[in-house]
Design a binder for these strands. Structure first.
Lengths: 153, 153
DNA sequence: TCCTTATTGATAATAATTCTCATTATCATT
DNA sequence: AATGATAATGAGAATTATTATCAATAAGGA
C-alpha cells in the first residue's frame, strides 16, 4: 500500500484525513508513474481493489490531490482530463509531445542543463514581475508523429 | 470583414470552402486577438452578427481552424476550451500564467532572445529525435496571483 | 471507546461538446 | 449567369465528462 509520509503529513496539516480510498488511489497512480491516467481508468482499477469505491470519490480525490500539488492534471485535447503523480517533484518532471493526428503522447525528459536553468530563471523573473507564486508549469508540443506525418491525408 | 488571403488559400488547397459563417467567426476572433474566447462567447457574438449561425457550426469551425493551425485551443482547467487567433504566427505568440485560486489568466510575452532561441533549438532537437513534426507549443505556469496568495485560505 | 466532522457512495443534475440528417450554400465548370 | 457536385449548415437530440446533493460512514483526536 502507498505510504508516503510527506503526503500524509501535508494532509494532516490541512485538517484532511488519509482514508483507505485516498491511499488506494495514490497507490494506483504510483504503480505507473509514467502513465497518463484518465479518471475512468483510475476508477476501474481502484474499484477492482475495493468495489465500494465510487466514481464521485475518485473525482473528488483527484481534485484534492491536484490542489495539494501531489498530482498534476493535464489536458491533451481529447475531452477528458489526465493525471500523473508528481514524484519527489523534480525526478519525474517531463513534458509532452502530443500528436494531433492520432492522440499519441510522447514523454520528453531529456532536458539540457541550459534548459533547466533557463526555466528556473524564467519562473523567478515571472514571479517577481507579475507578483505570481508559481507552483508548477506544463510545456506541450503539438504536431504530428511519424506515422501520422507519413500518411498525409 | 475578415479577409486574410493566407487562410483563404489554405482552405482552398484543402478543398474547403470559405463560407460566411467562417469569415464571421474569424472576424470575431481577430477583433480581440489577445482574448481567450470560449466557444459560447464566440457563438453569442457571431449570432448577434448573423442570427442564423448555430452552436454546432461554431464548434465545427473552431475545430477546423484549430486543425489548420489558424487558431490555437487552450485549456485552463475551468471545464471549457478557449481559443485564440494565431496572428502571423510569431507576433502574437505568448504564454500564460494561470491562477489556480481565482482562474485569472495573465499573458506573458516578454521572451528573452535566449529563451526564443532555446525553444527553437529544442523544437528542432525533439523533431529529429522523436521523428515528430512540431506545429506549435504551449507553456503554462500554474500558481497563485497576488490577490489569492495574500488571503491564504 | 466516544465524539466531532471530514469523507464517502449512489445517484441525480449539469454543462460542454458531438452527432444526425435533411437542407442550403460554395465554387469550379459550363 | 446558370448548373451541379458536394462541403457546410442549423436544429435539436444525444453523448460524455464532471459536479452537486444528501444521508450514511469512518478517521483520528480526546
Amino acid at each position: 500500500m502507498f505510504g508516503n509520509p510527506w503526503i500524509h503529513k501535508r494532509m494532516m496539516q490541512e485538517g484532511l484525513r488519509m482514508t483507505q480510498t485516498r491511499m488506494i488511489i495514490l497507490d494506483v497512480l504510483s504503480k505507473r508513474p509514467e502513465h497518463h491516467f484518465s479518471a475512468e481508468e483510475i476508477f476501474i482499477i481502484a474499484h477492482r481493489i475495493n468495489p465500494t469505491i465510487g466514481f464521485a470519490t475518485v473525482y473528488r480525490t483527484l481534485d484534492l490531490l491536484t490542489r495539494l500539488g501531489v498530482i498534476q492534471k493535464f489536458d491533451f485535447g481529447d475531452g477528458k482530463a489526465r493525471y500523473e503523480l508528481m514524484m519527489g517533484n523534480k525526478i519525474s518532471h517531463h513534458h509532452h509531445l502530443v500528436c494531433t493526428g492520432c492522440g499519441k503522447i510522447i514523454d520528453y525528459t531529456d532536458f539540457t542543463d541550459e534548459e533547466k536553468e533557463l526555466m528556473e530563471r524564467t519562473e523567478k523573473a515571472l514571479s517577481e514581475k507579475y507578483k505570481f507564486k508559481i507552483k508548477n508549469h506544463i510545456i506541450q508540443f503539438y504536431g504530428l508523429c511519424n506515422d501520422c506525418n507519413v500518411e498525409r491525408r
